[in-house]
């Protein structure tokens, strides 16, 4: 356990730079987004109300109030989030391959540590999880700050104030990242964790058997998907909707845990017996 935590700490320190840079980009871009969107709204208001002499009420009637949703829907806001998502996706692969590339092949060191090699797998998957949750957590802190800036820029009567919850639940893409209930959060990210574990297994197949390993990895991935969907497929095409929805949910959770354990077991086996430096 101690070795695992030390490894997690070590792995996390290896991405902390990338992580902070992405967070920095996110913060700066979103702040610019707040300022740009607020300015353009205010400019519009100025133009209509002072140049075209439109009464304030009429302006609000036809253009609506400014709310954080306008910002959240802009690419100033979404772009950096997409970048962070891409960063995590990229790092799922890079977290393994970086240990093999270059002349200082660190994988020698990792595999020769006097601890179960599965701890390396766990440490890496935990790091991916930490990185993901880190982005989610910091984004949740950034939104209220951005809302404060919006409040400072746009006067009261032109503004519709929304809470963080309202913002993230109003945009379907955001509800994927910030589901509105803890159950969904666990479900979504559990599924994500499962996907990462299957990808990791695929990577280890490749690292163990090279070209043949890619094929094995793809087959493993396909098998995982089939096993995961098996209850749904049986339910739909063979068993004539035999199950009640709650039973299907339980079956799916069992299947998910099954695939997760299989991934961990296969990865452990590959790391112990088959991996090659």
């Amino acid at each position: 356990m101690k070795k695992y935590l030390q490894l997690v700490n070590f792995e996390f320190n290896r991405i902390v730079k990338l992580f902070t840079v992405l967070l920095g980009i996110t913060f700066v871009a979103q702040m610019i987004g707040v300022v740009v969107q607020s300015r353009s709204y205010l400019n519009l208001a100025n133009e209509k109300m002072y140049k075209e002499m439109m009464p304030q009420a009429e302006f609000l009637e036809s253009f609506g109030q400014m709310s954080f949703l306008q910002i959240a829907k802009s690419s100033w806001f979404f772009g950096p989030i997409a970048l962070c998502v891409a960063g995590v996706a990229f790092y799922i692969f890079f977290i393994w391959y970086r240990d093999w590339i270059g002349k200082n092949t660190f994988i020698y060191r990792l595999l020769m540590l006097p601890t179960s090699r599965l701890n390396i797998f766990f440490a890496k998957i935990t790091t991916i999880l930490l990185m993901t949750f880190g982005f989610v957590a910091v984004q949740l802190i950034m939104i209220p700050i951005e809302i404060m800036v919006l409040k400072a820029m746009v006067p009261n009567e032109f503004r519709l104030d929304l809470g963080v919850m309202e913002v993230v639940t109003s945009i379907p893409e955001l509800t994927l990242i910030f589901p509105s209930s803890i159950m969904e959060f666990i479900f979504n990210y559990g599924l994500g964790l499962l996907a990462v574990s299957v990808l990791f297994t695929g990577i280890l197949f490749e690292r163990s058997y090279k070209w043949k390993g890619i094929l094995a990895g793809l087959l493993y991935g396909a098998l995982a998907v089939v096993v995961l969907l098996l209850p749904l497929l049986l339910h739909e095409f063979v068993l004539n909707n035999f199950f009640y929805p709650i039973e299907l949910l339980v079956l799916e959770i069992i299947m998910g845990l099954l695939v997760l354990s299989a991934s961990i077991w296969v990865s452990g086996f590959l790391l112990k017996k088959k991996v090659t430096v």
Partner: peptide
């Protein structure tokens, strides 16, 4: 700590 506090607060609040 940031993860636990931030995400924790979010879901406690929402619940």
């Amino acid at each position: 700590v940031v993860i636990l506090l931030s995400i924790g607060t979010f879901y406690v609040k929402s619940a």
